[in-house]
Amino acid sequence: MKRILPHPLLALVLLIAWLLLVGSISPGAVLLGCLLAIGGALALASLAPPRLRLRRLALLPGLLRDVLVEVVRSNNAVARIILQPAAKTVRHSGFVRIPLDMRAPYGLAALACILTATPGTVWVDYDAADGTMLLHVLDLSDEAEWVRIVKERWERRLMEIFE
């Protein structure tokens, strides 16, 4: 199986994307999509990326739901920060350095995407040597609180899925 189709997940995503783009599931579209998917998977295999291993896929829907809730919640929070009058701002923003235990590259990528996609936090840098990352937070009142949020809410669950 691995010899014939090296990256089955990518091939499936490519096929779905093609069918969405064409907007039909006629045999011709499916055939062309399959050709594209196989070609894409072979092309990726020649680049030899690190292997993606997903353990415990059952945790994924819950994680996605929590990300969605968090995006809505922090959209609201950041909109309030932007619209509040300039005179009474006691808020300050800043960088937090957070030590991470996760080393799986895809897990780190997922963590970066989650943190940056929620308004109010931007993943800035990751230092592979000592395993810390730099996070910029718009409304930074308590650094220890943010370390706790990142580690408890996201990192622990991503480690269960990716490591």
Binding site: N75, A79, A117, T118, P119, T121, V122
Partner: peptide
């Protein structure tokens, strides 16, 4: 700048 980076995320996500 580092504060302004957060602003476009509002439009980009929700």
């Amino acid at each position: 700048f580092y504060e302004r980076v957060h602003a476009p995320t509002l439009g980009a996500t929700l």
